[in-house]
Amino acid sequence: MIKKKEKQKNTFEKIYEVIKTMASKPSGLIGLIILIFHVILAITSPLYVPYDYKAIDPTLMLTPPSSEFWFGTDSLGRDVFTRTILGGRTALTVTFFGSLIALLWGGSLGIFCGLVGGKIDDIVMRIIDAFLSIPWILAMLLIVSLLGTTTLVLIPALGFFYGKGIVRVARAATHDVIAKDFIVSARARGHSNMSIIWNEILPNVRDAIMVEGAMRWSWMLLGFSSLSFLGFGVSPPTPDWGLMISNARGLMSFAYWAVLAPIFGLSSLIIGINLTADAFAKALGIDRSTKAPV
């Protein structure tokens, strides 16, 4: 008999372990570095931006990059560098909290449907299917034009639209474990539904849901920037990548810097989140390249 005493890992050690595994592959390491860089930038950038982001100076219109203005200036003479490093703040905050909401409602509804099954499950899933068939951007435009473009509207609205997919993943993952004997055993013992969800199902579906949430985050970022691009995201003069691209795209042929800088900011963040989510999935043992979550 093997008598090795193994230390039980606590939650922090487990998280450390997962991050270590993620960073062990180059793609995961790059993703993590990009993501952490963006997060640090978003938190600390107001402390060291060189200029005021809303200072307009008509004399400095569309100045090319120089030692004074690293990324040049835009059509109103505002410093592009300042606006670029500040431009991720709103996007990151809105989409991060939006993803959290999506995760929460999508995850709980999915687990609930998977557990109860039957008629209720059928009805809820058909409603979800109906929502999935509505182009999200149209629905978002409707909501935003009715309720305004404040963060308090955007976060729950995005959270709602991106949570639909999570419902399906959570439900499928729950269906996977629900037939297992340990659930039957817990039922036969007389545990309440809440206790079965919390103790037996959640630990087994948590990974799948979290990975799905991480993927949704990058899609939501793209979606949010599209809204800004269309003029329904943040309102000027708040700096935002989508808005900046939209404003400067007409001048692309002679003032490429005003477009390139926000494009670089946006795409690097999306790539960063995507790579991190992939590495996260692999570290948890869910390989997205060979097995789709649904």
Binding site: K180, D181, F182, V184, S185, A188, R189, N199, E200, P203, N204
Partner: peptide
């Protein structure tokens, strides 16, 4: 109380 056929299925792998 019940004891099942396959312990792989009757024990929660995350507990």
């Amino acid at each position: 109380q019940l004891i099942f056929q396959n312990p792989d299925e009757s024990l929660n792998p995350n507990h």
